[in-house]
Nucleic acid binder design. Sequence first.
DNA 1: GTTTTTATAATACAACTGTGCTAACAAAAA
DNA 2: TTTTTGTTAGCACAGTTGTATTATAAAAAC
Lengths: 195, 195
Amino acid sequence: MPKIIDHEKRREQIAEATWRVIVEQGMEGATVRGIAKEAGLSLGALRHYFATQDELLMYAMQLVKERAIARIAEIHANEEWAPKEKITKIFLELLPTNQEKMIEMEVWFAFTVYFRHKKEGFDAQHDGIYAGVRKLLDSADQLNLLRKELDKEMEAEKLYAVIDGLALHAYLEPQRVNGEWITKVLEHHLASLFH
Amino acid sequence: MPKIIDHEKRREQIAEATWRVIVEQGMEGATVRGIAKEAGLSLGALRHYFATQDELLMYAMQLVKERAIARIAEIHANEEWAPKEKITKIFLELLPTNQEKMIEMEVWFAFTVYFRHKKEGFDAQHDGIYAGVRKLLDSADQLNLLRKELDKEMEAEKLYAVIDGLALHAYLEPQRVNGEWITKVLEHHLASLFH
DNA sequence: GTTTTTATAATACAACTGTGCTAACAAAAA
DNA sequence: TTTTTGTTAGCACAGTTGTATTATAAAAAC
């Protein structure tokens, strides 16, 4: 064999190159040739790690999701924060408050719109986020952190909407809706739920 | 001359055919040939009304915006409603509560992601919506409809986020987040602002 | 050193893209 | 009827796409 290559690591490098192409040129630039060039590989080399373009894009999208889940799990596992603080941090993790998350969101958006008409039942990926928000709000209630008069189903939906609405606006108007501002807005909203 | 054709009307028909193609196949299906077929025209005929694909797509996107603005202006001009009622109706008009608006949102999303890396300063289109929300909230305040302790800048941003967050979730999870539900959620939120 | 196996590179090909061009067509005007 | 002109259809062309195929290089195994 030639230089032994860690296949999984190489696939992640290619996926990250795919992200960069999408951020800079959009989905139209995410051709196998464009991605290969960004990754510094030839067409044949790229094809050695991903048999088809579809497989590559699916992998690149899945990796976005895994990275985000891993970050949230890390916060969840940390025991040094008070419950209210930890819950706040998790919700804030869903907002694009830094460049890394901004890139992930941009890529996630592009993939979502792209795969919507290509894979059936693809958007089933998002049910999980609402369920997570609902669960976290429930756990906050069990810890007696929430104001009692709240309609929990309604507030879960509103909180979920505020989070993704802020994310969408950060995507559309990054100069006005920046990281500090959306942090402040979300914290203000959470303060209206806690007592 | 042959049968005189109303060019502007024909262009609108073609734009609507473009919408249908995008709803069914996404931006990847919005080729000049695909649109011509959906519109029931030949390639040459299509090219007679739009010299380039870019011109066609820009026109189709602009038409989405114009239709939405026209609907809101119509509500605004109607004098039979009380101020609070009218303001509520306008905000509700921004949500995809029926099939027509659902289609417009789907198309608007596809165009937004598509043009983002093709036209500079394109997303400047959205500054207008936030400004409108802010303005409408200010007018509500001048009519003494709002609770006094509210941080108006903050609440404008939150309301704007709730609206677009709900719209996004209706796009992603149409079965769970349907028209009736998002109407209820937005009305609940507005009730928390009014007194 | 020879063989085997893996990685990379280069080329080829069929399909599809946007757009240019030209001839035919149809109906109003002369 | 003839002319004129807006309208339409069809083909051609160059460029790009995803993917298949083949050849080459290099490290490991024997």
